Simulated scan of single mutants.
Amino acid sequence: MKIKNVSIVGLGALGILYGHHLSKKIPKMNLRIIADKDRIEKYQKNGIYCNGELCDFQYVTPEETVESADLIIFAVKFSGLHDAIKSVEKHVGDNTIFLSTLNGISSEREIGTYYGFDKILYCVAQGMDAVKEGNQQSYDNFGILCFGEKEGIDTPKVKRLADFFQEVEMPFELDANMNKRQWGKFMLNVGVNQTVALIEGDYGEIQKDGKARDMMISAMREVIALSSYEGINLTEVDLQYWLEVVGKLSPHGKPSMRQDLEAKRKSELGLFAGTVVELGKKHGVHTPVNEELHRRIHEMEQEF
């Protein structure tokens, strides 16, 4: 069964990125952006722009009855996931595939618990440097979506999505060990997002040698230490892989956490340092760098 109808919930930097791309590849009637009435009115009044181009989206509220989606993409912040899960109920059918582009290592568990893990494909969005300011999103690198089952890629569900992504020219990569890939991306977020947010800089600051890059790598190594207790076993090879990913980003780009603090919004601090510190206590592993990052960024947020 081919993928025809796609629904996206969340119009942050990634929601706009994928929505704008798909809007040029499939009929407008087959792409739905799910949002509440007030958000839709704001989007329609002010417009949503991607690299200076006005996005042509079809908006639907969670209450509207629609034809089932073959693919639902979650592109919200983790704090908004609970509401987002409920907002897509009228879009879910027997053959719906869920794909989450959220940071962290737990969104698939939340979605799968609600709708069933048979509908889940595990995903990591990497290599993009999209920045959103107001209704304007911009990027230099589109990046790729890496996906697969939690373990393995040889399933009809994976093939359906891979065939669709090939058809719509969506850059992707299949990974037979998505559990490890997600932990690798989590390690990256822990280092990059928090360090750049703390120093109030951009990717360029952690792409060059110095105190900021040292802090980033130290925070990432604490995740490596914890991963063995969780059965993931990240290594220095994985660290180097993700450092290479960071090195290819626009030096003027900024991660989502930095964008949140600039806008004086609560960030995903609990999802990053909070998770590391909690796992450290669970396994008796010292996590001083993430403890410091948590304390200092929390202090910044207290001033909002």
Rank of each mutant, 00 (worst) to 15 (best):
113 T>Y: 13
85 I>R: 10
82 H>T: 15
133 E>Y: 13
190 V>F: 02
137 Q>D: 06
171 P>R: 06
166 Q>H: 12
168 V>D: 01
108 E>V: 03
95 N>E: 14
89 E>D: 13
73 I>N: 01
124 V>I: 07
140 D>S: 11
79 S>Y: 11
159 K>I: 07
197 A>W: 09
101 T>Q: 13
197 A>K: 09
88 V>F: 11
119 K>S: 08
190 V>K: 02
113 T>R: 15
204 G>I: 05
189 N>Y: 09
154 D>Y: 14
149 E>Y: 07
157 K>M: 08
95 N>V: 00
179 N>V: 14
200 E>I: 09
80 G>F: 07
129 D>L: 07
84 A>H: 04
193 N>V: 09
108 E>R: 09
93 G>I: 01
187 M>G: 01
90 K>V: 03
211 K>D: 12
137 Q>F: 10
100 S>W: 10
79 S>L: 12
75 A>W: 03
135 N>L: 07
146 C>R: 13
121 L>S: 04
120 I>Y: 05
171 P>N: 06
149 E>C: 06
176 A>F: 12
76 V>L: 02
208 K>S: 07
80 G>P: 10
199 I>Y: 11
175 D>Y: 05
177 N>R: 05
202 D>T: 15
89 E>Q: 15
181 R>E: 15
117 F>R: 11
118 D>Y: 08
176 A>V: 05
162 A>D: 13
108 E>A: 07
146 C>F: 06
74 F>I: 05
146 C>H: 08
194 Q>C: 04
163 D>M: 00
